[in-house]
Each structure stands twice: as C-alpha cells, then as structure tokens.
Design a protein around this nucleic acid. Structure first.
Lengths: 189, 189
DNA sequence: CACCGTTGTGCAACTAGTTGCACAATGGCG
DNA sequence: CGCCATTGTGCAACTAGTTGCACAACGGTG
C-alpha cells in the first residue's frame, strides 16, 4: 500500500501530470520506491476514483493530452493517517546473498567478478547520493522541514556505504587467501 | 526467479519435506529470502514438474503424509547456471523512508516513536545474527566452504548494523534540537 | 504535406508474493 | 472410543509489480 502514498507525497510537493511524476520519481522518491509510468497511471486513476486527487481544471482531458493532478483534502488526510501507522520493516529479500549461499553448495566460478560489478554499481549510487547532498543540503542551512528529507537521504548514503564496505571486504576475502571462489567443485589445482 | 533456487539450495544441503523446508527457511535462507509454506509447496510442485527434484522413494504419497524431496542432477545444474548469472541488485523499496518523506510534507506526530520501535526490531535481529555467528562460526575454524556462508551472515550483520546506526542518529536528531518531529503543521508553541 | 521522433496516456497479460482456508493422518488423553 | 491438538499438504483468491504494446497529439524537417 505504499505506492499511492508515494504519489500523494510527490503531488503535494508539486501538482504534476503522470509523466512528470514518473520523471520526478526517477530522481527522488523513486530511490526508495521505484515505479514505472504504467503503474503510476493506474494508481492515479484509482486515487482519482477514491476522491483523493483531481485533475486540475486548466488541463482538458483528451488522449495524448496532458492532465495535471492535485491532491484534495481527503488525500492529504489519507496520507497523514498512513504516516501515523505502525508498520514493520519489510523482510530483506536479496538475490545476491542468496546466490552466495547457493555458491557455497554448487561452486562459484566468477562470483568474485559479480561482486565487483555490484560494488561498482553501489559506488555509483553512493556518488549520486553524495552529489545530491552537496547540492541540496549544504552544511550550514538546516531548514526545519528539510530535516526529514535530509535524514532520508542520509539513509540512502549509509545504506550504500554498507554495501560498498561489505562487498569490498567480501571480495578481499574471496580472492585473497585460499582457493578462488571457495568452490568445492573446482578447487585450485 | 529466486525462490526455486533458494529451495534447491536448501534441498541440496539436506533433502526435506515441504514443512521441514519451511521451518529451516525461518532460520537460515529465509533471513534474506523469506517464504511461506504455501509458496514453498507450490514451488516444490513446479520443480518436480520440471524434473529438478523428485520425491524420495521411501515416502509414500498420500494427502497429509510426509513427502521428502531430493535434488536431481538437472536441478543441480539449473542452480549452478543461476549462480553464474549476472543480476543487478534489486532497487530498494522501503516504506519507512517513504513515510519519513511524507512526514516532511504532512507532519509527523509520533514518528520518533515509530523509529524507536524499528530500532528495537533491528537490534533484535542483529543480536540473533551475532548469536548465530558465535555458535556456527567461532573465530578459529574457517573451513573453506563455510567461508561463503560466513560472508552472507556478515552481510546480515552489517546490514542490521547500518539500520541501528542510522535509526539511532535519526532519533537523536529528531527529538534533539528544534521542534519535535519536524512537523510543519504543528510547530512547537 | 508526409514522415518521424518526442511527449503523453493508457490497457492487457503475466509473475511473484500474500492471505485465508480446507482437510488428511497421527497420537495423546479423558 | 471420541475428541482435539499437531503435523503435514495443498488449493483459491487476491494484491502488487513487471513487461509489452497501442495509440493520440505535437513539432520539426525533407
């Protein structure tokens, strides 16, 4: 039940059309709740149906024609209620860790390479977050409502820092001592 | 496409029935790929259909009667192929970060409490992982095939360490300086 | 003007995970 | 013996996310 609330948040920050929303997702909310345009359009329909948002009167409704949405009081209220809810962290679900577990059983040629590839990706993401921090949250100003947004960004940064750290250590250990990849099926000759 | 491979891995470690598998998931593979018994039974059916696993002859097939599965060579091969695949990390999808973002817009009464609740949960999980490390991976022995399993566990530990660290700092900042919760709708009087 | 790339909206089918429930076999207990 | 908790298997319906595609409007270019 997160996507509709992600959309409400984005629309409250700025009324937008479906495509604008999609683009903005790609470089803000989408970092921790990614979504395709198809999904967004579908959800916009449902939100309008539910009376949580409406099309801005300025825009005329025609296929292939821009439709700007804005949040209605009911939508704001729904979002507020959702924020107040207690919700447990969703369980981790990570294929890479799973594959390492499988590699322990059936052998792991090339696993170190895959880890390096992931490391590069996470480093990239980390750099992107740091750039955003530099640009949007310079050390001096700590405007009050920005504090939460800043914390969220910090979360992203810390998360990528965890990954780069762990991957680095894992790679070190894998192609450092002993047989490469730890494969029981292909021990070092 | 991860669940079937998670199951193959578990079955290679030890042939099991559906329910045994479910239980073992809860305290090993399930930490990073949780799954319900319904899902597991369904997947076991598909894997058998595909010729990747089979029912051990010892067990007789009757409703309400235990069925032990073992992995066939084809299944082992399929798992090996999957391990060798390159697969990008799946995008983060975290409702808590999303809610903080929403809180920046509609106000956040009680958010700090929710963060504390999450902190407690993550501390618990961390303790569980550390206990497993203490029990299964004492510092001296580093048996070769265990290296990967140990790294995976390390991943879990580091991940929970990230969460507890970030949450602690977030809580500090939230109810430390300035108005509580950073709510724009309910500024401190 | 005809073509084509871009912007914009959207449907349909599929995949994977969740929730709720049904029901058979077994073994212990009153 | 009849009841019931436990172990064990499984179906059905639902929810959310993914993939593939269709098609309208607009603006520029040959």
């Amino acid at each position: 039940m997160s996507l509709p609330h992600a959309i409400l948040t984005a629309l409250l920050e700025k009324p937008s059309s479906g495509l604008e929303l999609t683009r903005r997702f790609d470089r803000s909310i989408g970092y921790f709740w990614p979504s395709t345009h198809q999904q967004i359009y579908r959800e916009l329909g449902k939100l309008e149906q539910a009376g949580h948002i409406r099309v801005l009167p300025a825009a005329r409704p025609a296929r292939g024609q821009k439709k700007e949405y804005e949040v209605l009081p009911a939508g704001r209220e729904a979002l507020r209620e959702w924020v107040a809810l207690a919700e447990d962290p969703r369980p981790v679900r990570d294929p890479l860790l799973l594959r390492m577990r499988a590699a322990a059983v059936v052998g792991a040629p090339g696993l170190a390479g895959e880890l390096r590839r992931h490391l590069a990706l996470h480093r990239e993401q980390l750099a992107e977050y740091l750039e955003i921090e530099r640009r949007d949250f310079p050390p001096e100003r700590t405007a009050d409502e920005d504090r939460l947004r800043r914390l969220v960004l910090r979360g992203g940064i810390d998360l990528e820092t965890f990954w780069t750290g762990w991957l680095t250590r894992a790679i070190d250990e894998l192609d450092g001592p002993g047989p490469e990849g730890g494969s029981p099926d292909a021990p070092t000759p």
